[in-house]
Amino acid sequence: MPDNLTAGEARDDNTPAADIAIVGAGPAGLTAGLYAVRAGRSVILIEQLSPGGQAATTWHVDNYPGLPHVSGADLTMKIESQVREFNLQVLSGQVLGMVPGAPHQLDMATGNIKARAIIFATGAKPRPLNIPGEEEFRGKGVSYCATCDGAFFRGLPVAVIGGGNTALEEAEFLTRFASKVYLVHRREQFRADKVVQERVLPNPKLENITPFIPRRIVGQEQSIQSLELERPDKTGKRELSVKGVFVFTGLNPQTDMVKNVLNLDEEGYITTGDDLSASIPGIFAAGDCRANQVKQIVVAAGEGARAAVMADRYLQTMADDSSC
């Protein structure tokens, strides 16, 4: 396959570089690429890191059909190598903005890319707590990735913030290293699936601290000393002596590059119709960057496929219209 070209090679005239440009190479973008090339479209897939997305950082994926007990990194590498069997261009770089038109244009630091249709599959990033000490101790005890950083906390107490599947599963992973894992959640009940709760919560290294809200991370220059908590109704406070604070309280979509161009919901997710089309014709969204409620790898992959099929149909309609 023609490998990574650079944005500098992109044409500056109005000739589209591809039928479909896909922004982001996580499960949604990769699957969109697979379906778009198989539909016979020319495709450029743009990724700022290497392919995989957030899924690649997941230790353990147990709910992707057909591939039980696979690691996130292995799963995304399998998808990527399947996509790379086909002829699509992979461009390494960051998309900074979009100019709608015929064709649409993606602005990048090194030039621009024009395409008749665009699929945004830019994903999401962990949402910070936005409390004092968080930024200061980022990389010094505050973490958003248990598989990356868990091993640095061997024999040390840590806190996990959050009550969803990710929080519980990552807390379980952290019990391999940490001496103690406090599970801090703002509600009495966890939101995680029942099967996950039943598996994780009996772990003797885990202690539930609910309902409590993190207020401040306290430490000295190079390390965290404690996490200050408060009850949601402000009737009580607690201080946990921990060396690590792992944050899994939700996601922020990576949609800054289109925030002034496409309709987004109040949290910044791209809103679409049932056909995954965004507020401008020829623009589609798939996966975690879309307002879709369910942030799962299999959903992202499914939406990538749907977005590619819808983009292909859109291009077909355009061709039919211009020929009559």
Binding site: L49, G52, A56, T57, A73, C148
Partner: peptide, 11 residues
């Protein structure tokens, strides 16, 4: 073991 480390390797 670090997924994001693998992702930034080409960068």
């Amino acid at each position: 073991w670090c997924g994001p480390c693998r992702m930034i390797e080409p960068v």
